[in-house]
Each structure stands twice: as C-alpha cells, then as structure tokens.
Design a protein around this nucleic acid. Structure first.
Lengths: 100, 100
DNA sequence: CCAATATATGAACACGTGTTCAAGTGAACA
DNA sequence: TGTTCACTTGAACACGTGTTCATATATTGG
C-alpha cells in the first residue's frame, strides 16, 4: 500500500466524514438535484451547500451538470453508491456483544 | 434518512478519514496483527498506533483478541473490507475528462 | 440592457483532533 | 516474585476545517 494511495483514500473518506456533507451526498443519491432544492430539503443555507458541493466535486464524489439556471448534482459513479450502502449496513448491525 | 443515522455514519467515515488510521486498518486487513508489528511495519510509535486502534475499536471497525502478551487486531466485518475495496477502486479510476 | 433568480466565492471565527511525551497496566517466564 | 515485554492511557500542544456573512458571477425573462 503506497502512502500516496493511503493519503488520497483518506482524503476521499474525509469528504464523507462530515454529517452535513454526507446528508448532501445522500440528498442527490437517488436523483440529480439542484443546489437550492438540496438546501431547502436539509434546511441549510445555499452558501453552505455550495461550499460543500465544491469539495465533493473536487473529490469526484459528485458531478455537476447545468440545466438552465439550475445546476444539478448527482453521485459520480457506482462505487460511491456502494460504499454508502455497505457502510450504512455496517452501522445498522446491532452493537450487541453476545451475553456471556 | 434520519439525522442520527447520518451522524453515526459520518462518525464511522471519520475513522477512515485519517491517513495514519487508514494505513493501520489496511495493515490488519489481510490477517490479524499485533500492535507492535503494525507500528513497526508503518514506522509509527506504539503509542500512536494504540491510540488509533482504540478509536477504531470504539467505532467497531476493528476487533481485538488477546493472544498471550500480544493483542491481535482484525477488521470487524466484511462490510468494512468491501467499503475499503470499493473506495480504492473509485480513487484508482483515472481522473481524465473526455477531451472535447 | 436591466432586473431577478440561482449558484459560487472569499474572509474570518470557533472548534475538534492527531500527535508526542510520560507514566500506567498486565501477562509471562526466569 | 519480580523483571521484562507488549500494550494502554492521560495531558497538552499545534493545526486543519465547518460555518456564517457579505459579495461576486451567471443565466433567463421583460
């Protein structure tokens, strides 16, 4: 495992490591959504959502596409969706240790 | 998507969001390894590795098992391994935009 | 071209967290 | 039993980063 790969990987995980940003990612998981709609749905300022989307786009977790006045954001590829699903399943598993 | 789920998910991703910690996780991906061996392989202090493993264990990303003097650490479940694999594939994809 | 809507950007503040150094447990073997 | 090896824990420092407020860019309609 080369250190530069570890570095890049950790930076990508870092993008999912903030609750607000993660909520934004989930918000455009099913269908591409414009910034304002995401902000409205999550009750966040447009500015904040835009800042986060900028980072997410830089890390290639989401992709943007312009439609008239709106800019639609979507997940970048299937890997991301799978990572989200698998990690969601992980945390969904119950935390119980078997009772001795 | 309930906010508490988003919170928990982001905290889990946060554990993978540090290069050192991520390297430690990868170090015990194939086989369970004692702390000292991980520290040696990655050229980190035992203290630092132990601190990180504590967090990783709290987040149930790794599990510990005592073998005599040594404490062996391994990945907690298959979800984690899959998340690592998928994300590694994601970052491995080339960053090229199609040339217009 | 001007107004209006939608998104992006910049600066600055407040806060969490990775790291180190030092000292504390705990198991094993003589 | 006491010494040594393997690991854990605590305190303290330095640094990155999420958020807000204010301002800038871009695209459509009149």
């Amino acid at each position: 495992m080369p250190p530069e790969t570890t570095q890049l990987l950790s930076e990508t995980f870092k993008l999912l490591a903030d609750p607000t940003r993660l909520a934004i990612v989930f918000a455009c998981k099913e269908a591409p959504r414009p910034v304002g709609e995401i902000a409205g749905a999550l009750d966040l300022s447009q500015s904040l959502v835009s800042h986060h989307l900028r980072l997410l786009r830089a890390g290639r977790l989401v992709a943007a596409e312009r439609h008239g006045k709106h800019v639609l954001y979507r997940l970048n590829d299937a890997h991301i969706a799978r990572v989200l699903t698998d990690m969601a399943e992980h945390v969904a598993e119950d935390h119980e240790e078997p009772h001795p």
